[in-house]
Amino acid sequence: MHRYANPSRFIRIADTIFPWAGGIMITAFAIGLYLALLKSPADYQQSEMVRIMYIHVPAAWMALFTYAFMALSSAAVLIWKHPIALLSAKAAAPIGASFTVICLATGSLWGKPMWGTWWVWDARLTSVLILLFLYLGYIALINAFDETERGGKAASLLALVGAVNLPIIKYSVDWWNTLHQPASVFRLDGPAIHPDMLWPLIIMAIAFKMFLLTTLVTRIKSELIAARVQNVQRSLHGNLADGRG
């Protein structure tokens, strides 16, 4: 386990991942946006409005995926006291919160013309709003102390407890009557989306996933170097104190 806890090793891995993930991200966004905005057909019911789906749905998937990553990292923090796991979860939280904001905002922009409302308190929309609050709560807790380690335990516990919200979000549309429609892609009897619309969605989903990867390795590396900066600062202060004494 602690083989991966070596910061220099992680920074080397991050430096290898970054250009690849970034390259795939740019390519996928270029193809995905071309397909989503120009090539894909209008929907038989929602006409052009369907194009919001190509950002709303990947953002929603990534909001859940990023939270799952954060919760698993937090479990590693609580069980193994793994320092890089804590930094990974800390680095992931703002990214997940951003995905959630995009999901909620684009959903609102989609809901107004189609459903006839910006917002309703149905089970799906409410549980996704709770997801945003969980992200914000985590960010607040982990930044509450100067030393990440101290806020880390409380924040990790919150992230782990909040994970019960993930299945609730996913199945809210099946368990309760909601305004939001049930799943179109991940269903037992196969996607209910025509291939001409499924492909742009998949490629945009890849782009979003690569965005997570590039931003995540950047932020983790940043956290690791910040930790080093703190170490060097501490040793410098120590030296100065020794010199004076």
Partner: peptide, 18 residues
């Protein structure tokens, strides 16, 4: 007093639906 439209989870081009 208020009416909302609920759409289903099927997406397809108009020609395919026709």
């Amino acid at each position: 007093e208020e009416v909302l439209a609920k759409h289903d989870e099927n997406y397809m081009p108009r020609e395919v639906a026709d």
